[in-house]
Design a protein around this nucleic acid. Structure first.
Lengths: 243, 243
DNA sequence: GGGGAGAGATGCCGC
DNA sequence: GCGGCATTTCTCCCC
């Protein structure tokens, strides 16, 4: 199959998305440098001039260029050379294409943004609205007071009016989560000039090492999972659960 | 355009890579949950049954499924429903396709692995072969001794036979890099039962906060950049630099 | 633009 | 499998 260079340039010009199936070799130079020998790949150039190169397996692109990259293609001795450059980022790529299997260009329209539930932020919102999940008598700070300490997930007083710092993790908490909590508790003690501040990790799981370190520091663990189920899923959600 | 369900199933069966341009709506449920309203997207199913869904802009897939996912497609009232499930991971996705713009299947062959230069590992290798980059008289530990402390990038003795722990960063070092170094120095002091261990951050840049914290802890900074330029690039490398 | 932290992070290598 | 950690991490938010 031949590649129509004029069609390629026109597609880029009108911000179409280009998808090329090809046999190619790739040289990259920028933050790092890489070389990838000849193999079959899918090349995607998006409307914002992001470039992605995918091998037949794996989640991540094997090579890529960021938004705003410029492209120039040329034919040289039966091969196509796609030169990619992102001058501000000092990133460059040369793609040596020896066979074209497919060429597609699509004018795509998509203004939708994803709605995601189950993030760490959703966890802290849940604890804010249900403080009893931490313990009876726990009272989170007001929104205004809390924003002054934006780096803390949940911040409040226990039933004895002792300050409590809560660090949420949506996955199994590790020792770095404990280090983070330790950093925040230290910071609050300094800022407020007080000696007694409690620290709590809220997460669905915690590693043995992290739990050990947590207890050594006099902190606590609460087994709490991030919320799920989009309200808007409605009956559709049931279908997803029926697999 | 119509989608040939038989062709789709056959492509999956023979581990071809499938690329579909379409208008679709996406429901996901697994580690988290998400909903994405109708818009134009590129759907890729790879040979290993990884699924990627890309919007017309941005580097990352807006939704995805991991390796080993199973697929079933059906037509319902002028729409196609692609149901995706990964039972072991408890991950599910429903893709409601209302228009097909393009359908491609490619039998891809690619056994090449990327060669990358400029990683943190390359930095520590460079320091091992040129210890003077740290300071005159620095002597890294032997390979055998070093592997016992695999978590440390570079480990050796200075000219006064004091132990030195070096943590490399390929980018600007931040306070987390300093915390990491602190953790390693502490661990080595415990393991060896000694009191004096030097700590050094080797990185091309370091943030002001990190440098302050580093000095407060009595550690040091060496401005060292990761190595670049693949030897095998040879003359090609020159071309990349000529942009 | 830098700093700080999350991510449905992923991927690699170790034990 | 989990743990620890790098990643051409990317992304978002906030100062």
């Amino acid at each position: 199959m031949e590649l129509d260079i004029a069609a390629f340039n026109e597609a880029l010009q009108k911000n179409a998305v280009v998808v090329i199936g090809c046999l190619c070799e790739i040289h990259y130079s920028g933050r790092a440098e890489s070389f990838l020998g000849s193999g079959d790949r899918i090349i995607i150039i998006k409307a914002d001039k992001t470039l992605l190169i995918h091998q037949p397996s794996g989640s991540n692109p094997i090579n890529y260029m960021k938004e705003g990259t410029t492209y120039s293609i040329a034919k040289e001795k039966e091969k196509f050379i796609l030169r990619c450059s992102n001058i501000p980022l000092k990133e460059y790529m040369d793609i040596f294409i020896s066979k074209i299997y497919s060429f597609q260009q699509l004018q795509m329209e998509d203004t939708e943004k994803i709605q995601l539930v189950g993030s760490e932020r959703d966890m802290s919102d849940m604890i804010y609205s249900q403080p009893g999940l931490i313990e009876p008598g726990f009272r989170p700070l007001s929104r205004e007071e809390h924003t002054k300490y934006g780096f803390i997930d949940v911040f409040g007083y226990d039933k004895n009016n002792v300050l409590v710092v809560v660090e949420c993790k949506r996955y199994a908490a590790d020792f770095r989560a404990v280090e983070q909590l330790q950093r925040y508790v230290k910071k609050i003690k300094e800022l407020r000039g007080i000696d007694k501040v409690r620290g709590i990790i809220a997460a669905p799981e915690i590693s043995a090492n992290a739990l050990q370190m947590l207890h050594d520091l006099g902190f606590e663990y609460r087994k709490i999972a991030p919320p799920k189920y989009l309200e808007r899923f409605g009956k559709d959600q049931k279908r997803l659960g029926e697999y």
